[in-house]
Amino acid sequence: MSDPFTDIPDDGGSDVALAGELALGLLEGEALDEALELFNADPIFAALVAEWRLQLSVYDEEVVEARARPAVKAALEARLFGDERVPVWRRLWPWQLATGAAALAAVWFALAPVPPVTEPDAAAPVYVAELSAQDDSLRLVAAYDPAEDAIVIRRTEGQAQAGRALQLWGIAPDSLPVSIGVLPDDPDARFAVPADLADRVAGLTLAVSDEPPGGSPTGQPTGAVLAAAPLEGI
């Protein structure tokens, strides 16, 4: 790069000095506007500004670090990401108080892949439901996993009667039940959300019915509905 400024005149309006003044933030008004115009039009001038910035950064070592109050970070994140950015686990807390540790463990299982790779997206809605039979002989917790568009179930109490099966249904408002799947023997299960229920998770009611092995032959519940509960956003 040819440097027209090695031969320094008495202050003849040198671009070197102007670039330094811009980097220092000394320019105001018209002088600032002109310098910015030059900056945008002339890559050599722009490079000068960047060089000044780098050279002046030797002073940065003098800066004494200072800790901001924790509220500053909270306010910043609220400002950038909105108030909905409440961590999943904080949202789960009141829910856990109402439902107990087993339910929390189930939702953890639903939302945190093992090994946990990333924290569940804090902005995504979390839907959970706890289904229990009137006599508590059957209890399940369910959660919707938005990352996989799946419904995750953990059976915490009870099982299918001998020679029978438990089938999970999703019932959207004003709609017939849609089969989500037959619960396996394993207490934990994960089901893809059926196409008929796509985008209808909010407001969905889950239900478990008593069915023949392999599930209802008709596509609709044929046996007793043992437990039902709406998926609720938390």
Binding site: L22, F39, A47, L48, V49, A50, L54
Partner: peptide
């Protein structure tokens, strides 16, 4: 007034240390 303009100067390419 100036924030946007100042920001523009941040994209300057200079030395590569």
């Amino acid at each position: 007034d100036n924030l946007a303009d100042h920001d523009a100067t941040l994209t300057a390419t200079g030395p590569t240390p």
